[in-house]
Structures are given as structure tokens and as C-alpha cells.
Write a protein that binds this DNA or RNA. Structure first.
Length: 842
RNA sequence: GCCCGGGUGGCGGAACGGCAGACGCAAGGGACUUAAAAUCCCUCGACUGUAAGGUCAUGAGGGUUCGAUUCCCUCCCCGGGCACCA
């Protein structure tokens, strides 16, 4: 048994050992040396494949590594268990979403165990269980109390296939992120959370997140989309026959107020609510309203395609540019968006490409107000808008300024004159959380004829999701047809009332789960402030980059709300974020590289691999496959390399068992070592340094593993036998034993087994992480490279610490050097101590 | 269009401004074996030489430097985010 690596035997044994001895159970009442290591909790969709596995394996390696540093590591796990896929499956198969979800959870839990991935399972949270969603509902009530939740009618994204509204974040290129159907706009009454109140803080506090990848912060910055500009109010010229002196204005938002003297018309979005009033009774009325109706009805995808020709119509009205009191025509056009700025745009065709295209098409005036550096910009020579910087011209008292400087001056002027102001616009919209679906937490609101909107009293929580519901989607929430759910007494007046029938977006569930892990069984409150303050923020958060915007923004938002409510004392939840890359595989169908999916036929199941190679091999290969933050290509043959390495490791211990045991108590002694074992011993300590460095940096497991492999190659080269000297034997043993400790976060089962084989009575998790011995790193001689003009021509072994002059002398004396220097002039000699000599000749 | 990444052998990938290709996979050759598996040894960027060696090579072109995969500039390609955003 011992000559073959018996992974199938040892792996379940150690998994049970870790579990039964509570190695991953963490006492959060103790605060010292806390390390909160969190993996994004998964949606329990179905069985995990090796692509999913990467996330958990990385997290487990980090947790084990940190444990060996003596930290009190918290690694909980839970389930993002509400959501559409289970419901969609239910519609297809007729099975209740609760059944499928709970089954999937059981399957996945088992899978995680077979990987040797360990969690503090006592803290498991499941978003679809009442003991969790009770508190999700409670949190909703808190937002409502603080006026951060509101109900409004608005144009919302509607997926005709999923038959529900979607958050802006769930619409990708005009399509539903789930089913790819084109998303419509619908006017509906919905619940929103006021995330826009936090836009500036969400933006500013990104600078606190030094442990986050730059790209994630950039994505959030883009998403928040702050733009600074100026609001300018244009007076609406009264209709013919209408009394003059009306105060009606049309406000526009611009980031380029410096160009305003070049404004030759103004444009409204087709959805502009004042439009109908403005054109009432005009000859253009019919055409304008017809145009606006058509334009607004176009699918979002059509509307935002930038290759499409812009269209528009003149409204028949005029507005006055307050900067020069010029009357300019007012148009309505489809290229102006109601959701951005004020829904009205001052058009400066000379300096904006969109306005240029529109003005050219409809023959509108173009007027230059920014001159280029060469001062040769003329209308007749322009083929497109001039959008670069320059000097303001024909701009009244603002003429002759560098245009960037004109912006604050002109904004200030507008403010003083009372027709404008500096204005900051955010792209971020409020978060629409209503879903017309069944499988989610009911929104705890009651509608009463007399009292209006009444929040469910906290004592009545949870509002239980009823089981007996026809959940086929119709556009109305399935709950609306469940009379025993809907009919309720008004908590205020006691008269019959109706419940809100929508459920909450599942992203609400996942916006606070990391706090619940800290007091998962508390039936009296959502979170324990003291424990949260002690254990938060999460020290290391690990998950997929696909959550860079949605989940990570919402979780930050929730944390900030809780901070404002005084429930917690931190306002950012995740100190360090690690986003791992996806594992892809070439599809057997078309040979292209795709992320693993059933449809592409490129899913690799872990079960067969664990059966054939063992979990440690799967873990090792998964970590070795490439830098963990980058996407990687799964190679079925690559796993062979991993298992070969573990087999060799196994054999080194058992083949040399007697020799190794014979030096059980013998200390490695540098002074007593021969050259061979001293080299190996140095290699060991170099490896400790490098592996530690790779782990402390960006979790470069691939390099760390490569270094351990190198160490084992060096071990082979040194070799050992019964006849070897005592120090050689001792060093051999030390390298194996320490190498096993270094490898244990990645391949824990085999390392635990071999560790015990070396006579240790406690788990390798209790062993401390190896430290590099500085004395071992000292060398007496080094190899120095000799370059001629930067090219390596020779190398020599010299004593360490040789003076530059001596090194140079030695180098010049070399035959290979004289050959290259002969007949040439030595211009310069660069000496880097203990490293190289570079001779520049010409 | 704007903002992030990235481009290194047949492949995945290593390289504090200092020996490019560590480590692994694949491939080829050999040993062991009745055979296979497993294991072990050797070769393995391109071109050129019998060889020692030489030349060229990190997307392309410039620059800084004694020396550049690494720093700077310009450009090309790939991936990602945002986008008729005023």
C-alpha cells in the first residue's frame, strides 16, 4: 500500500479528521489575530465543475496558509439561494424551487468536501430560509424608515421573456443578462433604493480600497459615471399671440459651457414631459407629437446604436441663449436621452460631433466659438466638428481665453446672473429592487385603502413566502394570485388590506450575508454590531470579476447605510479583493475557447478526476494552471503533471523511509555540511523565501508551486542513501519535511499524511509556516556573468564580496574576453558586485 | 470614442532594469518490461556550423541605458468596462 500513492484512502480520512476536530470552526468572540477570509457565496444552480472549483480552492489555500501563520481564520460558506434559475427550472419540471435548491445545496456541499475545501459550516447561511430573509426584510424596512426606499412610477426595464423588470445593472447591451431577450421600456410602479444618494461616497471611498484591483475600481468609477458640468436655463420664447414675459425655461446640462456662443439650436428628448404643452396649438403639433411617440417607442437597442442616422423635427418654438440673448430654434430629436442630464441639450455643431451630424443633415447653422492653436479653423474647411481644446472666439466678453479656463468663469457668470449653476451628474440610477417573480424574499409592505403604504411591523416578520403558488410568470407577481398571502389586515387600522406582491431582487440578499456569518443563529437581530465591528472588514474577499459592479457596489452601499444607521463602525466591507479568472476550455464542437458551460460541451466534472487522480491533484493543477487572476485554459493532460509530482513526493518519503527515520532528532548544521547538502539546504531556504513572497503578494500559487517543484528536483539531484553522511541525510529529511509544509495549503491531504509519517502528532495546520534561515542563504562563492556590450560571453565563479576592481581584473584576464576585446577600444566597464561585469567596447 | 488589462517556444506560463524561456504539458530518442502501465535518463525557440561557437529572437517601430520582456513615446492586434453621456 505504501509504495503507491493511495489518495483514495487518505483523502476521506483527513477530510473527516479536519471536520471532526473542528479545525475550521472559529470562535468570533475572540478578536486577536482575526483573519476573515470570504468567498463569494454561490448560487446553488447544479453540480460544480472545475471552473467553479478554482474559487474555493484558492480560498481554501489562503485560509490554510493564514492558519499556519497562527491567525484565527474565519471561513464561512452559504448559499445565494433565491433567484430566477430555480424558478425557471421549476416552471419546466414542475418541481418546487425550494426542493431543487435544497437538493443542489446538498450536492454542492458534498462536492466541496471531496475537494478538501473546509468551512466553518456551523455558520452556513441560506438566503431562501426564513431565518435569513426575515432579516433581509428587516433591512428593507430600515431603508424605508430612512427614506432610502421609495415607490415610484417610472420607465423601467422589462424583460418580455422573464416577464419581470430588471435593474439597469442587469441590462447588457439592451438585452436581459439572463436570457438575452431584448428589453422593453415599461411604465410601472416599483420599489427603488436610493443608491444615488451615495454616489459621491461610493466614488470617493474607492480611494480607501488599496487592496482592490485597479480594474474593478475603474469599472465602478465608470459605472457611477460622474460628470461635472453646468446647468444653463434658456428662456422659452412665447408662442405667437401668447403673453410675453412668461417665465418658462428649458434647462440643459453641458460639460462644455465654453462653447455656448456657438450654440445654434437646442434639442429635447422625445420623452420630454413638457413637450406636449409646448407645441399645443402650433401647426407643428401633430407632426412633433407623432415623431416623439415613434422615437420613444423604439427599442433601446435601436435607439442607442451609434451608427444610426439621427432624426428629429423642429418644434416650432424658440429659446433664448442667455449668454448672448440670441434666439435659437428648439428641436426634438432621438439622440437626446431623457435619463441623462436634464433631457435637453444645447447644440453646438461646430464643436460636437453629434450636433455636427444633425446640423448637416437638417441644414442648421454652424458657428465656430473655439479656435485652434494655428488659428486657421474656418467653417468651409471643416469636415467634422472641432472637439479639441483651443481659444474662445466670438464669445462676447469671454473671447480670447483658453477654453478650459473659460468653463469655470462662464459657470460662475451664469450662477451670478441666475440662469445657471455648476452641476454634477451621475450616470448611476437608483436601484430598482422589485421583481415580479416568486422565488425571492417578499417585500414587507402592505397597501391599505385608508392608510396608504404601510410597512409590515417588525414584530410580524418574516413575511413568509407561501409554498402553494402557481409560479408560472404572467407579468404579475405569482404571489398576487395567492389569496391567503395577499389578504391581510392593515397593521394601522385593522381593515382589510393587500400585501405587496413583488419580491426583492436577489442582490439585496447578497448585499449583507457577510455580516450574518458573524451571528448566524441570532434570532433577535440581523447582525451583532460588536462582533461585526471586531471582525469586519473582510480581510480577503475572493470571487469572480463578473461581480465587479453589481454585487460589490450594492454591498458597499449597504455597508454605508448600516454605518449611517449607527449599526456598524466601518463603511467599507472588503479590505482586500481578489478576482480570480475563469477557467476556459476549447469546445469540442468548434475548437474555440469558452468558459465552461454545458451548452458549449466543454465542462470538466471534478468527480471523475478526483476518482482517478485524487483531490490534491485536482487542486494542485487548478492552482498551477496559471496566474489566478487571469483566465486560464484547462488542459486535460496538464493534470498528469500534477499527479506525477505528488507520486514522486510520496515515493521520496517511502523509498527513503528508513534513512529518514534514522535522522529523526538530528539537526541540520551548516558547519558540518558538505558542499552538496549545503547547496540543497540553501535552495530550501531560498524556496521558503520565494514561496512566502508569492503568497504574500498577489497569491501567485502557480509560481509558488513551481518553486516547490524546483526544490524537489534539487532534492533528487542531491539524492540520499543509507551510505550518505549524517548531514546529507538530515538535510534531505529537512527539505522533504519543510517542502511538505510549504505545499500543504495547496495539496493538504497528502501533506497531512506525510507530515504524520514524519512522526508529528498534530495536524500540519498547527505547524507554523517555515521561516527562511538567513545563515543558510550565505554563499561563499558566486557565479559572475561577463558581458561584452550587454551580451553574455563568459562566466566565472568567484569569492563572494569581491571588490569591483578585482572583478574587473579577473574578467579582463579571461580568454573569451580578450577574444572579443582584441583590436577594440574599451569604453566603459560596469561591475555589479557578485553579479556581472559588462565591458562596453567599440 | 474614452478608460483599464494583455501580446514571450508547439502549448500553459517564469523572469527586484542584469544569463530570456524557470516550472509543467506535449513531442522525439533511449533504459527497464514478454507486453502495457508506471518509473528513470537524454533532446527540445529559430537559423547557421562537423564542432567549439556564431547570428536572430519577448506584437511593430523609435527612445533612455553599459545593459530593456521590464522604463518612456508612437503604432498594430487581442480581451474587458463604459458609451448618441451632451
Amino acid at each position: 500500500m505504501k509504495d503507491k500513492y493511495p489518495f483514495a484512502e487518505i483523502e476521506p480520512k483527513w477530510q473527516a479528521f479536519w471536520r471532526d476536530n473542528g479545525f475550521f470552526a472559529t470562535d468570533t468572540s475572540k478578536v486577536a489575530n482575526k483573519y476573515y477570509c470570504l468567498m463569494m457565496f454561490p448560487y446553488p444552480s447544479a453540480a460544480l465543475h472545475v471552473g467553479h472549483g478554482r474559487n474555493y480552492i484558492i480560498g481554501d489555500a489562503v485560509a490554510r496558509y493564514k492558519k499556519m501563520h497562527g491567525l484565527s481564520v474565519l471561513t464561512p460558506m452559504g448559499w445565494d439561494a433565491f433567484g430566477l434559475p430555480a424558478e425557471n427550472a421549476a416552471i419546466k419540471t414542475g418541481k418546487h424551487p425550494r426542493t431543487t435548491t435544497l437538493n443542489n445545496i446538498a450536492t454542492m456541499k458534498e462536492q466541496l468536501a471531496t475537494w478538501g475545501v473546509c468551512y466553518d459550516w456551523d455558520r452556513e447561511v441560506t438566503a431562501c430560509q426564513p431565518d435569513y430573509y426575515k432579516w433581509t426584510q428587516w433591512l428593507f424596512l430600515q431603508t424605508y424608515k430612512r427614506n432610502l426606499a421609495y415607490r415610484a412610477r417610472g420607465q423601467v426595464n422589462w424583460c418580455p421573456s422573464c416577464k419581470t423588470v430588471l435593474a439597469n445593472e442587469q441590462v447588457v447591451e439592451g438585452k436581459c443578462e439572463r436570457c438575452d431577450a431584448e428589453v422593453d421600456k415599461r411604465s410601472m410602479e416599483q420599489w427603488f433604493l436610493r443608491i444615488t444618494d451615495y454616489a459621491q461616497r461610493l466614488l470617493d471611498d474607492l480611494s480607501k480600497l488599496g487592496g482592490w484591483p485597479e480594474r474593478v475600481k475603474t469599472m465602478q468609477t465608470n459605472w457611477i459615471g460622474r460628470s461635472e458640468g453646468t446647468r444653463v436655463d434658456f428662456q422659452l420664447v412665447p408662442k405667437q399671440g401668447e403673453a410675453a414675459g412668461g417665465k418658462a425655461v428649458v434647462s440643459c446640462f453641458t460639460t462644455r459651457v465654453d462653447t455656448i456662443f456657438g450654440c445654434t439650436y437646442m434639442v429635447l428628448a422625445p420623452e420630454c414631459p413638457q413637450l406636449a404643452d409646448m407645441v399645443k396649438g402650433l401647426p407643428q403639433e401633430k407632426d412633433v407629437l407623432a415623431y416623439a411617440r415613434d422615437a420613444a417607442a423604439k427599442p433601446a437597442l435601436d435607439r442607442t446604436s451609434d451608427t444610426r442616422e439621427k432624426t428629429g423635427v423642429f418644434t416650432g418654438r424658440y429659446v433664448i441663449n442667455p449668454f448672448n440673448n440670441q434666439k435659437v430654434p428648439l428641436w426634438v430629436a432621438d439622440y437626446v436621452l431623457m435619463e441623462y442630464g436634464t433631457g435637453a441639450v444645447m447644440a453646438v455643431p461646430a464643436h460636437d460631433t453629434r450636433d455636427w451630424a444633425f446640423a448637416k443633415r437638417y441644414g442648421l447653422e454652424i458657428r465656430i466659438s473655439i479656435q485652434n492653436a494655428e488659428k486657421n479653423l474656418v467653417l468651409s474647411g471643416m469636415e467634422n466638428a472641432y472637439v479639441e481644446d483651443g481659444t474662445t472666439v466670438d464669445s462676447g466678453e469671454f473671447s480670447g481665453m483658453p477654453n478650459r479656463q473659460a468653463i469655470p468663469k462662464m459657470t460662475e457668470y451664469a450662477a451670478c446672473q441666475g440662469f445657471g449653476a455648476a452641476m454634477v451628474h451621475y450616470r448611476l440610477r437608483d436601484w430598482l429592487i422589485s421583481r415580479q417573480r416568486y422565488w425571492g424574499a417578499p417585500i414587507p409592505i402592505i397597501y391599505c385603502k385608508d392608510c396608504g403604504v404601510v410597512p409590515v411591523p417588525e414584530k410580524d416578520l418574516p413575511v413568509l413566502l407561501p409554498d402553494n403558488v402557481e409560479f408560472k410568470p404572467t407579468g404579475e407577481s405569482p404571489l398576487a394570485r395567492c389569496e391567503e398571502f395577499m389578504n391581510v389586515k392593515c397593521p394601522k387600522c385593522g381593515k382589510p388590506a393587500r400585501r405587496e406582491s413583488d419580491t426583492m431582487d436577489t442582490f439585496v440578499d447578497s448585499s449583507w450575508y457577510f455580516l450574518r456569518y458573524l451571528s448566524p443563529h441570532d434570532t433577535t437581530q440581523a447582525l451583532n454590531s460588536e462582533t461585526c465591528n471586531n471582525w469586519m472588514p473582510v480581510d480577503q474577499y475572493i470571487g469572480g470579476v463578473e461581480h465587479a459592479i453589481l454585487h460589490l457596489m450594492y454591498a458597499r452601499f449597504f455597508t454605508k447605510m448600516l454605518f449611517d444607521m449607527g449599526l456598524v463602525k466601518f463603511d467599507e466591507p472588503f479590505a482586500h479583493l481578489f478576482t480570480q479568472g475563469m477557467i476556459c476550455k476549447r469546445s469540442e464542437i468548434d475548437g474555440q475557447l469558452y468558459k465552461m458551460s454545458k451548452r458549449k460541451g466543454n465542462v470538466v466534472n471534478p468527480e471523475a478526476l478526483i476518482r482517478d487522480y485524487g483531490a490534491d491533484t485536482v487542486r494542485l493543477y487548478t492552482l498551477f494552471i496559471g496566474p489566478p487572476e487571469k483566465d486560464a485554459e484547462w488542459n486535460d493532460q496538464g493534470i498528469e503533471g500534477a499527479v506525477r509530482f505528488l507520486r514522486r513526493l510520496w515515493r521520496r518519503v517511502y523509498d527513503n523511509r528508513d534513512v529518514l527515520m534514522s535522522v529523526g532528532g538530528v539537526k541540520c548544521d551548516l558547519a558540518a555540511m558538505g558542499e552538496k547538502e549545503r547547496g540543497l539546504y540553501r535552495k530550501l531556504h531560498e524556496t521558503i523565501g520565494r514561496v512566502t513572497h508569492d503568497m504574500e503578494g498577489d497569491f501567485h500559487f502557480n509560481s509558488a508551486i513551481a518553486e516547490i517543484m524546483e526544490l524537489m528536483n534539487a532534492l533528487d539531484e542531491c539524492g540520499v542513501s543509507a551510505d550518505s553522511g549524517i548531514q546529507q541525510k538530515a538535510v534531505y529529511r529537512e527539505v522533504l519535511e519543510t517542502g511538505i509544509a510549504l505545499l500543504s495549503p495547496f495539496a493538504p491531504h497528502i501533506c497531512e499524511e506525510l507530515w504524520q509519517e514524519f512522526g508529528h502528532k498534530t495536524s500540519i495546520l498547527k505547524a507554523s509556516w517555515p521561516k527562511a534561515d538567513q545563515a543558510a542563504l550565505v554563499r561563499s562563492s558566486v557565479e559572475v556573468v561577463i558581458q561584452i556590450n550587454g551580451k553574455v560571453r563568459d562566466r566565472m565563479t568567484v569569492d563572494v564580496g569581491l571588490a569591483s576592481k578585482d572583478l574587473e581584473k579577473l574578467a579582463m584576464a579571461r580568454e573569451a574576453v580578450s577574444k572579443h576585446v582584441e583590436g577594440k577600444t574599451v569604453r566603459k566597464v560596469i561591475v555589479v558586485a557578485d553579479k556581472l561585469v559588462n565591458i562596453a567596447v567599440s
